[in-house]
Amino acid sequence: MKPLLERHGDRLIGVLSPILLLIVWELLVRFHWISAQFFPAPSSIAVTFVKLARTGDLWLNVGVSLRRLLLGFIIGGVPGLLLGIVMGLSRPIRLFIEPLIASTYPIPKSALLPLVLLIFGLGESSKIAMVAMGVFYPVIMNTVTGVLQISKIYFDVGTNFGAGRWKTFRTIALPGAAPFIITGVKLGIGMGLILISIAEMVGADSGLGYMIWNAWQLMDVETMYVGLFMIAFLGFVFTLLLDEIERWLLPWRAA
């Protein structure tokens, strides 16, 4: 039996640096070397976190943001996936749609927020639309690449064994492109988190972005940090979740 440190060494080193940072931060504030006005001590952020968690304010805002993320993710991701596969399989359709994607992709999605607000108003739909846009592009682009990189011989096998359109899609294009699609989804979720924060800062009365913005207006710095930590935490959880889904969906990938 190996000693604890040897068995969990890598993971221990991994958690060491954040803990060290928090301790140094705490000390710096305690000794008044940095201003608590901008960098409140981790301990006071924790106190605020508990307070917000007790009143339920925090969970309300997290819940609202999650709902928008989820809906936007589905509304942007599913069409991105389907269209991407169709484009990968059909050259004419790809040639037809590609210029549209290539020309709209470079527009920073955040710059479209005013337009989106104009079209969808201040309600839920504008936030969901922002997330959907952020998810759509990485998913469609990675899916097209994913289908195109599938070796031609697999499609020949499909033809030889009598696979029609639907079966070719189900048994070859979709699983063959899956590793790329998952990469697209990961990028899309990162994009979605950025855009939801921005969208909720402008013209929203709930959500994590709103919480952060509102805290700025009230000069409630601790609450602002709680919001920031929550977003970082969500991003972290999504990453873990997707890694798990990837392992489960793609058991055929060499480790």
């Binding site: 011989i153 063959g176 899956a178 793609l250 055929w252």
Partner: peptide, 10 residues
């Protein structure tokens, strides 16, 4: 087929 042709995902 000549060469590898079994589906890696099955």
């Amino acid at each position: 087929f000549q060469g590898d042709s079994i589906f890696p995902w099955m």
